[in-house]
Design a protein around this nucleic acid. Sequence first.
DNA 1: ACCAGATACCTTGTATAACAAAGTACTATA
DNA 2: TATAGTACTTTGTTATACAAGGTATCTGGT
Lengths: 128, 128
Amino acid sequence: MKIENTQVQMRKGILEYCILHIISRGEVYASDMLEELTSAKIMVVEGTLYPLLTRLRKAGLVDYQWVESTSGPPRKYYTLTQAGQDFLTQLKTTWEELVKSTNQITTNNNGSESLPTTVTDPQKSSQS
Amino acid sequence: MKIENTQVQMRKGILEYCILHIISRGEVYASDMLEELTSAKIMVVEGTLYPLLTRLRKAGLVDYQWVESTSGPPRKYYTLTQAGQDFLTQLKTTWEELVKSTNQITTNNNGSESLPTTVTDPQKSSQS
DNA sequence: ACCAGATACCTTGTATAACAAAGTACTATA
DNA sequence: TATAGTACTTTGTTATACAAGGTATCTGGT
């Protein structure tokens, strides 16, 4: 079990949340998002971001406009729809509760109030 | 896109971390873990927990002993190996950095310092 | 001795999503 | 008209949560 896998798992959950949040602050295109995520040390690659944006679009949470650039091909500038704003509000609650729950578990160093004393016959044991 | 899917994604990342933490505090068996996770409002079902414990075992992060019970079939009591403790230490760092990064993004309400003013030709746009 | 119910652990199939890598398309500049 | 840079897309692989159903063990009542 590689630590990278678990780290990826941790990232997965918050990625959608972070991206919706970035879009909620004003029109941005993919490279803007990559830059901000990278500066916050959340590693994402194109192959993750573009399909995610497509999913958000299909779900009606974001919309975009093609905008021409003076320095290259046109860009898709994303905005949040009303449904996206509602979704983001729900995610905010979910995230905050999850942080709270995790802290509850990881700062609890004996857990005696929730762990029943169910060890009744510890004299006999065998390895499997 | 259902909100449940995203919530599941968020949970996925921290589940391994929480379970290793629970095991690190003393010997527990699966039902103990389920009870504690549930009391912290982190919903997990057997079909998730048991395969996860098997993965952790195969990775050498946890070990277990069969212990007989006076009130039913024997139970697998889990303990953390040295490798598991090291892994947990790394996960703790990862988790804390991720919370920090997420806060950085979600509490930043204009992002003007990291968003380049790249909108240069916004006069022409078309929907796709 | 037998059976029902409770407890504990396990397995199979499905769906989702990140990622690596390679590809397509458009623009500016030499 | 090449070449380099920018922007967006696609394909195949892998990991893992979950629902649902299964197996095995133990206790207590009759």
